[in-house]
């Protein structure tokens, strides 16, 4: 055994396979994410959640916007849609309403979902649209080179705030709750088991669900702020995070160096969009109401 070669000095069964592979387009690997980026880690959790939830994979669709996390749709071996910047949620809304048997997962970044797409987020939450929104929050616009996001904490240096950010941030969990989300949780890429469990939970549940995942961005966020590499961020998450299930979201704001409150904050039953629509139409129209059947046919 020689530690300078890349031979693996342990016995591996011939049929051993990476459990993520059935869920990914392996012909597209390697992916574009940087060394130490956490998006791939969240994808591992998502694949475990798909496996553990026993979801019918033909009926799960992933919709992404634009940005580093927006690329998840392209790697997921599911019906997957890489849409326009900020518009994953309204696309997903149309997809879900046209085919309600689909479990529609929106997988995108903080800039995409909360700056350019912020309006869509609050309205989908208000409607309790049956979407599972996973936001990988790396606190920066990474794809475009590290510009300030609505989540970039105060005083951080970014490409567009070279002297430090002076704007307050959004507290995403609090925003989601106030807008009406049925389920709100926050984890970091350190919390892989908990994150996978949360994802599994939302895959089995109706209504607008929101999971925020803090994830390292060593290249564009940490480097400018002398915060080390991806592993340093992971150690930081481990050291600073505190699980507080049911914590009032208003008390869970994030800062650059402070405590990171994680956990499941909100889990409440509300009728979803289609249930409300059906109830109202049945009330008003009675037998005249026709259940939506929007699918068009091909010939023959």
């Amino acid at each position: 055994m020689n530690e300078t070669t890349l031979e693996i000095p342990c016995e591996i069964p011939e049929d051993a396979r990476n459990p993520v592979e059935p869920f990914l387009r392996m012909d597209r690997m390697p992916h574009i994410w940087c060394a130490g980026c956490g998006i791939g880690t969240t994808v591992n959790c998502f694949t475990r959640a798909l496996l553990d939830s026993k979801a019918n994979l033909d009926k799960v669709a992933v919709v992404s916007g634009i940005g580093c996390t927006g690329r998840v749709a392209g790697y997921a071996r599911l019906d997957s849609f890489h849409t326009t910047h900020g518009r994953a949620i309204p696309f997903a809304t149309g997809l879900k309403l046209a085919n309600p048997e689909l479990q529609v997962v929106v997988y995108s970044g903080d800039g995409d979902l909360f700056a350019i797409g912020g309006n869509h987020f609050i309205h989908a939450a208000r409607r309790n649209m049956d979407l599972k929104v996973i936001c990988v929050n790396n606190m920066i616009y990474a794809m475009t080179g590290g510009q300030t996001a609505p989540t970039t904490p105060g005083t951080a240096i970014t490409a567009t705030a070279p002297y430090g950010v002076s704007e307050p941030t959004f507290n995403l969990a609090s925003l989601a709750e106030a807008a009406g989300a049925s389920y709100v949780a926050r984890w970091t890429t350190y919390h892989v088991k908990q994150l996978a469990r949360s994802m599994e939970e939302v895959l089995k549940r109706k209504g607008f669900c929101f999971i925020e995942v803090l994830s390292p961005c060593p290249t564009l966020y940490q480097r400018r702020n002398k915060m080390g590499d991806g592993l340093d961020a992971m150690k930081d998450y481990k050291a600073k995070s505190k699980v507080r299930n049911g914590a009032p979201t208003g008390e869970c704001a994030l800062s650059m160096t402070g405590e990171i409150v994680v956990g499941k904050f909100v889990d409440r039953e509300r009728p979803d969009y289609l249930e409300l629509l059906r109830a109202q139409m049945t009330e008003t129209l009675g037998d005249r109401y026709a259940e939506p059947e929007v699918s068009c046919c091909s010939e023959g």
Partner: peptide, 24 residues
Amino acid sequence: GGIFIQMEDELAASIAIQGAVWGG
């Protein structure tokens, strides 16, 4: 038997219809 949804803006409306198309 169908859906009309009033979206939050025209950006949303013009992409929601495309999600619906890919849903059939």
